[in-house]
Amino acid sequence: MTKTTEAVLFDVDHTICEYHRSTRKLLSLAFDRADVTPFFAVEEYWALYGEYVGESDSIDGLREQCFLELADQNGETRERGRQVAEAYNHVRDHTNVRFLDGAAEALDQLNDQYRLAAVTNGPEDAQATKLDALGVDQFETVVFAGFETPAKPHPAPFEKALAAVDTTPDNAVFVGNSLEADIAGAHAAGLEAAWLRDGAVPVDGPTPEYVLEEPADLLARPWETAD
Rank of each mutant, 00 (worst) to 15 (best):
A156D: 14
A226L: 08
K130R: 15
T23D: 13
S28I: 10
G176N: 06
D182S: 01
V175S: 00
N121C: 10
E213A: 15
R24Y: 15
D125V: 14
V173E: 01
I183Y: 00
V36A: 07
G190T: 05
N171G: 09
Y210S: 13
V203D: 13
A151H: 05
D108P: 06
Y52I: 04
V8K: 04
H154Q: 11
P153C: 06
N111W: 05
V12I: 15
E224L: 15
L70Q: 06
D170W: 00
C17E: 09
Q83G: 04
K152G: 07
A47V: 10
V97N: 03
L68C: 06
E51F: 12
L162W: 01
E44V: 04
D217V: 14
A145K: 08
F40K: 04
D227N: 14
G135H: 05
V42S: 14
T167W: 02
Y45G: 00
E124R: 12
H20R: 15
P215L: 07
R63H: 07
S56Q: 08
N121T: 08
A104W: 00
T167P: 04
A186H: 00
T120N: 11
G102V: 05
T15K: 07
T129K: 14
A156W: 08
D198Y: 04
A181L: 10
A189N: 03
F144S: 03
Q138S: 12
G54E: 08
W46G: 03
E159Q: 14
R63Y: 06
L218E: 11
A189I: 07
T77R: 06
D137P: 01
E69R: 12
G205F: 09
P222C: 11
E64W: 03
V97D: 01
H154E: 11
E213P: 07
F40H: 11
R78D: 01
L29V: 02
P38C: 08
D166I: 13
E86K: 10
E6F: 00
G190W: 10
Q127P: 05
A193H: 00
L219F: 12
S58A: 11
V143F: 09
F31G: 05
V201Q: 12
Y49M: 13
C17I: 02
T149H: 13
F147G: 04
S178T: 05
P150E: 05
E105L: 05
V211F: 11
Q138A: 11
H90P: 00
D112L: 13
D57P: 08
L131R: 05
Y49W: 11
Q138C: 12
E55N: 04
G185P: 07
D170P: 02
D125M: 14
V8A: 02
A118F: 04
T129W: 06
A47Q: 12
E69F: 04
P202N: 10
